[in-house]
């Protein structure tokens, strides 16, 4: 009948489309995507004694003549100097070990919460989230007092008579593992819990009716169906831990380097912005693979379910 309201609605919907998609896209493009272009550019530049401490890639030599200079030495240094290679391998190793420990500890916890009585689930879950709301820095700091040579753990073990001399735990790789697992455990439990509560309990009943033992039913039914949760949780732990700075800095040994700490040192202490940028680019390249893998797997599983 009357076309005006309809056209108006269409115009508003176009406007709302523009605002809803355009504004966040613009923000992320400007403050998340563009910075990486600049990091890449600076990783290819030369350090200089200037403010800011690098030389631009291009230079107008004279009217109409643009000179572009690309410096690959930062990347060659990372490849050739053992310190950097070691730091990357060590970071990946720490992230892998901690992801596995988080999974081994977090899966049974998520499973126990998901199978608890319904009125207990939310309080139990709140107790997992609660530490996340207190300061991360302070929770890592708490472990310094516990793991110190004359700290609480050593006193406790001496008192028990398990050990005769205090153990050196603080400033070792073990302390890093403890700190990382402690800080990232909620990130493993939450996606696992979300996944496990959505599982259809009739499937397990069917398996039991058909004579399947509980353990076997768990291995054949629950575990495969909780794969999306396992993948999501593992990636939420693995990816940020590779670049972790605070935990290795406060709890780790000065000798065992991780990339995040190395980048921090190159940037703040050595003022070598190009080298820090090159480290960031390599780290980003390493993390793109698990990130895309996670997105793909998640998408496939989402599509498979519906």
């Amino acid at each position: 009948m009357n076309q005006t309201p309809n056209m108006q609605a269409r115009q508003t919907s176009r406007l709302s489309r523009l605002v809803n998609i355009g504004v966040p896209y613009f923000w992320l493009g400007l403050f998340f995507l563009l910075p990486f272009v600049i990091v890449l550019q600076i990783s290819l530049s030369e350090p200089a004694l200037a403010q800011p401490p690098y030389r631009l890639l291009w230079e107008w030599v004279e009217e109409g003549l643009l000179q572009i200079q690309i410096n690959l030495q930062n990347f060659m240094l990372i490849w050739e100097d053992d310190i950097y290679l070691y730091a990357f391998l060590n970071s990946l190793w720490v992230a892998l070990v901690c992801t596995l420990i988080c999974l081994l500890l977090g899966y049974p916890m998520a499973y126990a919460i998901a199978t608890a009585r319904e009125r207990h689930r939310i309080p139990l879950l709140m107790l997992i989230i609660l530490p996340f709301w207190t300061s991360f820095l302070i929770r890592v700091y708490a472990w310094i007092g516990i793991l110190n040579t004359n700290g609480l753990l050593n006193h406790f073990l001496l008192w028990l008579g398990v050990i005769d001399t205090p153990l050196q735990i603080l400033h070792t790789q073990t302390a890093v593992y403890i700190g990382v697992v402690y800080s990232y455990l909620p990130f493993m439990i939450l996606p696992l819990y979300a996944n496990l509560t959505r599982l259809d309990p009739t499937l397990l009943e069917a398996a039991a009716d058909l004579g399947c033992r509980p353990l076997r039913a768990f291995m054949r039914v629950t575990l495969p169906l909780s794969m999306p949760g396992i993948v999501a949780g593992s990636m939420l732990v693995f990816i940020p831990v590779v670049g972790e700075f605070v935990i290795p800095d406060l709890l780790g040994s000065p000798g065992s380097l991780m990339v995040g700490k190395l980048m921090w040192t190159e940037f703040f202490s050595n003022k070598d912005w190009p080298l820090a940028s090159a480290l960031a680019i390599v780290l980003l390249g390493l993390l793109v693979i698990p990130f895309v893998l996670m997105q793909r797997l998640q998408q496939n599983l989402d599509e498979g379910r519906t």
């Binding site: 403050f31 998340f32 910075p35 990636m235 939420l236 670049g243 995040g260 940037f267």
Partner: peptide, 21 residues
């Protein structure tokens, strides 16, 4: 992808890249 990437991106990378920007 762009929206979700900051969830897992290591802090050192976000910090460095924004400073350079």
């Amino acid at each position: 992808l762009l929206l979700m990437a900051p969830l897992v991106m290591p802090d050192v990378i976000i910090g460095l890249s924004l400073l350079l920007l």
